[in-house]
Design a protein around this nucleic acid. Structure first.
Lengths: 232, 232
DNA sequence: AATGTCTTGATTGTTGACAATACAGACAAT
DNA sequence: ATTGTCTGTATTGTCAACAATCAAGACATT
């Protein structure tokens, strides 16, 4: 049965995607993140190559990149499969996030320019509006991403930014797609974001880190509870 | 001028290295980490393929993997080059380490078994012996790695372990190779390791994290000072 | 019936050739 | 002299065919 991916061009164009293998990577990544390929599903090279309208070379490259991003598992001579996102792994993901984004907030409190902080404030304001207008919930996920993204960038640490935005980011997205049934605690999150901005504005690295870590730890606890309550 | 890498087989055999591209990855990685290829040096595909005695396919795979490990920079249609380890990047590396290994120590204090803790103690004892016998310095680098490695594994967080041991680890090694001229503060480190074990043994996650972070932050400061004093 | 071996089909690993792109040097124009 | 364009060469991107490996089912043996 043919999936809804006739070729690579159906993927979102990302500005840096010049070569075929890069476009294939993006296309395959989105397909996995969005659940077109189910968790644990085998990735057959010739079949996928046909679907994406490329030869096996670029496709293999794409698979390798997704392996290094943690979205795909690989066994030599056996093949690739979409990573099965078990409970344990999700908790692990949030623990790593807590560590890295905590550090990002600390560094952001030191390195962010005043302009960048103002941008952050504007962003929060927009989210606030949305929350009031649309009775919460809606767009919260993307909004949350934007906010965290700006702080990460504001850290000024390129390695950290890369680790979070290029590697872990897509894992988080994938998880969110699979668990969109969970309500996002959007009003709570807004308050926490607000506090975080204060800490950064006051150039208090310790507080910024602590608040960010609590923000993420709280999300982790919330998810943990949800996952347990769903246990069969 | 021919380098001292006639083919892939000269690389250290790592148990999981079955396929040619995996062996090539290991070989190329070691060559880069150990400085056979200088920082910033261009990696020419046909030339390297000849040197390693493989075709361009596996070699390209190897390069891609090293890109995702941060050892190699890549520009489409231009090619790959060994990452130039500038001062800024080294500091960044230690900031990320501080965050991740801090979290590892925290989790280790929670999750490590008593047996694992005993192993850690034995390891420290061995390092202590070496320090007294060999008037310090010697073997400190590897010893330090072993110690940190066991704590990371002891965290029980696979994602964290992978990030540290498969990605950042080799960057650190590469940096150490380039700066072996720096004296390692080995007696200081031993004391800090000792304290860390206490914290883990007493199941004090907060203290364990704090000590690990200080341990790494101190190393960062030491390196910072060295780098500044070398400024031309 | 259960276990072990063999064979077959499918899938991955590797290769070398060809196409597309970028870089360097020569040359012309201002 | 400097800038811009062009051309040839080198390098990377892509492909399709071939070799090596693995997984599953048939068959024989205990």
């Amino acid at each position: 049965m043919q999936k809804h991916i006739s070729n690579v061009d159906s993927a979102p164009k990302e500005n840096g995607d010049k070569t075929l293998s890069e476009r294939t990577t993006t296309a395959l990544r989105e397909a996995i993140v969005c659940g077109t390929f189910k968790a644990g599903e085998k990735l057959n090279e010739p079949k996928l190559a046909t679907q994406f309208n490329v030869s096996r070379g670029p496709l293999r490259e794409a698979i390798r990149r997704l392996v290094s991003m943690g979205l795909v598992e690989y066994t030599p001579n056996v093949g690739a499969k979409v990573i099965p996102l078990e409970r344990a792994r999700i908790i692990e993901l949030y623990e790593v996030r807590e560590a890295l984004e905590g550090m990002a907030a600390r560094l952001a409190a030191i390195n962010m320019t005043d302009d960048e902080i103002n941008e952050l404030k504007k962003l929060l304001e927009i989210h606030h509006q949305h929350h009031e207008n649309n009775a919460g919930e809606y767009m919260q996920a993307d909004g949350d991403f934007d906010f965290h993204y700006q702080i990460i960038k504001g850290s000024g640490n390129e390695l950290l930014t890369q680790q979070l935005c290029n590697e872990l980011y897509h894992l988080i997205r994938m998880f969110r797609f699979q668990t969109s049934r969970f309500k996002t605690r959007s009003d709570q999150a807004l308050v926490e974001h607000q506090q975080l901005i204060y800490a950064i504005e006051n150039r208090d690295p310790g507080l910024a880190e602590m608040l960010m870590r609590r923000h993420i730890a709280r999300a982790k606890q919330s998810i943990k509870a949800h996952l347990l309550s769903e246990e069969t």
